[in-house]
Design a protein around this nucleic acid. Structure first.
Length: 945
RNA sequence: GCAGGGGUGGCAGAGCCUGGCCAAAUGCGACGGGCUUAGGACCCGCUUCCUUUAGUGGAUGCAAGAGUUCAAAUCUCUUCCCCUGCACCA
């Protein structure tokens, strides 16, 4: 098949007919589909086909269901990536240039890509071209780019609105920070692209006995505070005393240098580590006096450089104390156990705890466990396992928290301690040191920032309400959104660099590029009309009128100078289309864009304009691997479309996997699809070669399969379970047709009916081939706007399908038998099939129903027999045989005569398939010894030699 | 660590919600055979083990273990393992 020619032909025909241009209608219900617009910093590869392709399948399906469908598209260019792209070109970045060449981008264009606007413009065109070639049913009149001035006006309006609602707040937030360059660093700004992992920990204050000063220890395990027996410092490090919020603390100098980014730390004086060892502290939970020792494992710049020691629950602490004891120090320190692991838990701990020698010191158990195993970092591994098992199975024994789970106690103790002023929350970098590209180690800075306050309670409630009314596909991603809505809190909205809209409250900043695109979908409803309006006329008043219905047309027209007809059409367009919108994207956007979209819609638009559906889909693997530059398996979309055709690619990538999982591109699968499409195309061409005529068993079978298919596929496509749709429509249809054609001479009318419906069901995923076959079948209309087929429940017959299956099992049984005979040198001449008697069916059905042998025996052999049998002894034997496999007895619908009739009709098919004469007889008249082996839907087979 | 998703035959992947007709669809791959000058095309068979030289039988089996049930890939619990996300970044 010449896919390229077919694709081009129908794409042009659709364009000429302006088939996909959405206009509002009085009679048809709207259905608007929007996809997260593509970011224009690179060409499209086949991965893009997934989200956009699925959306297009839905658009095409809904169109066939009679909806007035609008599928618009725009382009995203705000933020820093395009600037970074231009910078890399300027620096002649070889990797990037090589990638671009892979996509056949000519040198003279690459040279111009030092200009960000050129880049954006270039890829807008590239992507639009690819989308056209993929056959998306997009209304292109509405496209816009997110850096166009008229869109910026819309974004400014939105932020003004959010500010007036009080959702823009100034706040403080921990970020990875380069002390050298003085700016925030994310993963992309670090050496080897390491994400700085910021963790919240608890800083516990231990008051120095007899002084108004404290030693503070950061800990992940506040539940063990009452088990603290002493503190550790490293006396060889440089220490200082410093003031934090009026209180004096001792810590290492390095720690205080780092901590000053996240709190008010003022260094007062140097402090001598050795002198600190002479002091003691008070445990804020138990009041115990704690000595201070020196230990080498204490790190200079992690936390405060002061560590609390819990020998019962921390292998490092236990080991350090043991070492001290060897030196004659810390002799009176005894581990204090505060967490107990029950004996019956499935922990490693409980397996060996009761061995002699463990004086109720959990950490010692873990240490010995790993000592026995040997290997590196014995204490580290012991710590890890103990932490894990105590977190999982542990129960508190500490005073005041007895019986609590470790997790509960951790939260409760933290809260109690903070409330009493004995602890504070602070941040540490879990994977420190992380280095900025400039070479400096990154610290944590708590910075002032403008935020969108998604933590606002009222707003959250509103978002939850909006979400609860939405359809989410696939259903199993629902929970992810629920936790995202709960979790999302302050979100920084301004950045110091990047393309985009200026932040109204701080005009030297740019609005962060996910924040500027939370409600842009609504802009599609008016973009084509507003493009003609001078930008300075796009005031807040105008947007308030169009999107919120504020004010009246005359006033707005007068004050903005915009023609009232334009205003009215914009308002009508928005109010029509935006009542029914489905939003599509990949799962990576759940925790940011999609959640923000829910929040912003909920607060900006009135209830009827909230999104009705969110669809999240997986991505695409290329030949079994994730697409990546290093593997070199990135396939440019346009190349693939040219090589395999749009429909093969659409079916494979968009419909090749379940919604949430990754689909896979492979040339094998492409060949497989090509074969099936070709088969459908060929057989459609031949429908007129066959006569009509009275319907036979096999015709009813095909109708049954077809109607079942329509029923199931309709149900699946509604849920966008496209893998099921494509296997049923493409793969299964070919299998069914092959069987139908093999079984006997096709009925031309039946064949055409079948193919017509299959083509209609193919239209959303494989629209070009569907159009081609549709017209080949003699239709003049576009299949793209035809009606989706309906099914007739009465044509779906389990029985007929089971009966056809019976033929298959007879054939395979007989083949097996003949093979066996030939193996032993015998030569089969003819086959007799012996159909089981009626009483066997009755017994089988009774057993199936009653599941009770005695009852059935009674029915045959009792005082008042309900089942009439010719020979009671035989019948008893038969019951016993069946009883053994009670669970697998199925109900037999066909009577002996019906089964006989079916086999008679299929006689020729059986003979041909087996290559041997097949005759039939009933059990009662058969003289064969094998006749008694016959069972309902399992005729006995007698082979004569 | 927290949150979400998952673990099915050589591979991919259905089935699980609504337990029984499930040794488990379908596709790919491997193997054997046919067709053919040839074949990456097409057709047939086979792809857990045992049994049977006239069949429909049996065992084991859907990460591991336990439970519920007449009956478990499917329901419940526990454990192990894998993937994704954890923010100012599109």
């Amino acid at each position: 098949m010449d896919y390229k020619e077919i694709d081009g032909k129908w794409q042009k025909a659709w364009d000429d007919a302006r088939l996909f241009e959405g206009e509002i209608s009085d009679t048809k219900k709207p259905y608007m589909i929007t996809v997260a617009f593509p970011y224009v910093n690179g060409p499209q590869h086949i991965g893009h086909l997934r989200t956009f392709g699925i959306a297009d399948v839905l658009a095409r399906y809904k169109r066939m269901r009679g909806y007035n469908v609008l599928f618009p598209m725009g382009f995203h260019a705000t933020g820093t990536p395009i600037l970074a792209f231009a910078k890399r070109i300027k620096n002649h970045d070889e990797d990037l240039i090589r990638d671009l060449k892979l996509f056949h981008i000519p040198d003279y264009d690459i040279e111009k890509m030092t200009d960000p606007l050129f880049i954006a413009d270039y890829f807008v065109k590239e992507i639009e071209n690819g989308m056209h070639k993929a056959g998306y049913s997009i209304d292109w009149r509405r496209k816009f780019v997110s850096i166009e001035p008229f869109f910026s006006k819309f974004v400014e309006w939105q932020f003004g609105l959010l500010n007036s609602k009080g959702y823009l707040v100034k706040g403080r937030h921990p970020v990875g920070w380069c002390p050298n360059e003085n700016n925030a660093v994310g993963m992309h700004d670090t050496k080897r692209d390491v994400e700085p992992e910021i963790e919240k920990v608890v800083g516990v204050k231990f008051r120095v006995d007899g002084e108004d000063a404290y030693l503070m220890c950061t800990t992940y395990r506040p539940e063990t505070i009452s088990g603290v027996t002493n503190l550790f410092i490293n006396k060889d490090l440089k220490h200082v005393s410093c003031k934090i919020d009026g209180k004096t603390y001792y810590m290492t100098k390095a720690a205080s240098d780092i901590l000053k980014y996240q709190m008010n730390v003022e260094q007062v004086a140097d402090a001598d580590g050795g002198a600190l060892l002479a002091k003691t502290c008070i445990n804020p939970m138990t009041g115990l006096q704690l000595p201070i020792f020196s230990a080498a494992f204490v790190e200079d710049s992690f936390g405060t450089g002061v560590v609390m020691s819990v020998p019962a629950h921390a292998p490092f602490d236990y080991a350090a104390l043991e070492k001290l004891k060897e030196q004659g120090k810390a002799l009176d320190i005894k581990p204090i156990k505060v967490i107990e692991i029950p004996d019956d838990s499935q922990s490693e701990f409980s397996k060996i705890r009761n061995m002699p020698g463990y004086l109720d010191i959990p950490s010692l158990v873990y240490i010995d466990m790993f000592k026995a195993k040997g290997g590196e970092d014995m204490l580290g591994q012991a710590t890890k396992l103990q932490y894990k098992e105590e977190s999982h199975h542990g129960r508190m024994t500490a005073k005041g928290y007895e019986g609590m789970s470790t997790a509960q106690a951790r939260a409760k103790i933290t809260a109690d301690m903070v409330a009493a002023g004995n602890a504070m929350e602070m941040y540490v970098m879990a994977n420190s040191p992380v280095y900025c590209r400039c070479g400096y180690a990154i610290v944590i800075n708590v910075v002032d920032q403008w935020f969108l306050n998604y933590g606002d309670k009222g707003w959250k409630e509103l978002a939850k309400k909006a979400y609860s009314e939405m359809t989410v596909l696939p259903e199993k991603s629902r929970k992810a959104f629920e936790s995202a809505i709960d979790w999302i809190d302050l979100r920084a909205v301004a950045r110091s660099q990047g393309l985009g809209t200026k932040f109204p409250l701080e005009p030297d900043k740019i609005i962060e590029s996910l924040s500027d695109s939370t409600i842009y979908m609504s802009f599609y409803t008016v973009s084509a009309m507003l493009r003609a309006v001078p930008v300075d006329k796009l005031t807040a008043e105008l947007f308030n009128y169009i999107f919120l219905g504020h004010g009246n047309m005359d006033d707005v027209s007068k004050s903005t100078g915009v023609d009232y007809a334009v205003l009215r059409r914009c308002k009508e367009s928005f109010e029509y289309w935006y009542t029914n919108m489905s939003r599509h994207s990949g799962p990576d956007l759940i925790f940011n864009h999609l959640t923000m979209l829910i929040f912003n819609h909920a607060t900006i638009f009135s209830h009827k304009y909230w999104p009705k559906q969110i669809v999240v889909n997986g991505s695409v693997l290329s030949e079994g691997e994730k697409m990546s530059k290093s593997l070199g398996n990135i396939v440019p979309l346009v190349d693939a479309l040219d090589k395999y055709g749009a429909d093969v690619m659409r079916t494979m990538v968009a419909a090749g996997a379940e919604l949430f999982s990754d689909s896979e591109f492979s040339s094998d699968a492409a060949m497989g699809l090509d074969e099936r499409f070709s088969y459908l195309y060929d057989i459609a061409q031949r429908t007129d070669d066959f006569e009509g005529g009275e319907l036979r068993h096999i015709d009813y079978w095909l109708y049954s399969k077809l109607n079942r298919k329509i029923r199931d596929v309709t149900e699946q496509i509604e849920k966008l379970e496209l893998r099921g749709v494509s296997t049923r429509v493409v793969y299964d249809s070919v299998l069914e047709l092959k069987r139908y054609v093999n079984r006997s001479e096709p009925n031309g009318m039946v064949l055409k009916d079948y193919i017509t419906s299959v083509v209609l069901m193919m239209a959303p995923t494989a629209p070009h081939i569907a159009e081609e076959i549709w017209h080949m079948l003699g239709n003049e209309s576009f299949v793209s706007t035809e009606k989706w087929p309906t099914f007739d429940e009465s044509m779906i017959s389990d029985r007929i399908e089971a009966e056809e299956q019976l033929l298959d099992s007879i054939i395979s049984d007989a083949k097996q038998l003949m093979a066996m005979m030939r193996k032993s040198g015998k030569d089969p001449k003819a086959i007799t099939l012996i159909v089981a008697e009626e009483w066997k069916r009755q017994i089988g059905n009774a057993l199936h129903k009653e599941r009770n042998i005695k009852k059935v025996i009674d029915m045959v052999n009792g005082a008042k027999p309900e089942i009439d049998v010719p020979d009671r002894e035989k019948a008893m034997k038969y019951i016993q045989q069946l009883a053994k496999k009670m669970n697998s007895i199925s109900y037999s619908e066909p009577t002996q005569d019906e089964e006989f009739g079916l086999l008679t009709e299929a006689g020729q098919y059986l003979s041909e398939s087996l290559g041997i004469d097949v005759t039939l007889e009933k059990e009662s008249v058969s003289k064969s010894q094998r006749a008694q082996n016959s069972a309902p839907q399992r005729p006995a087979i007698d082979i004569s030699m």
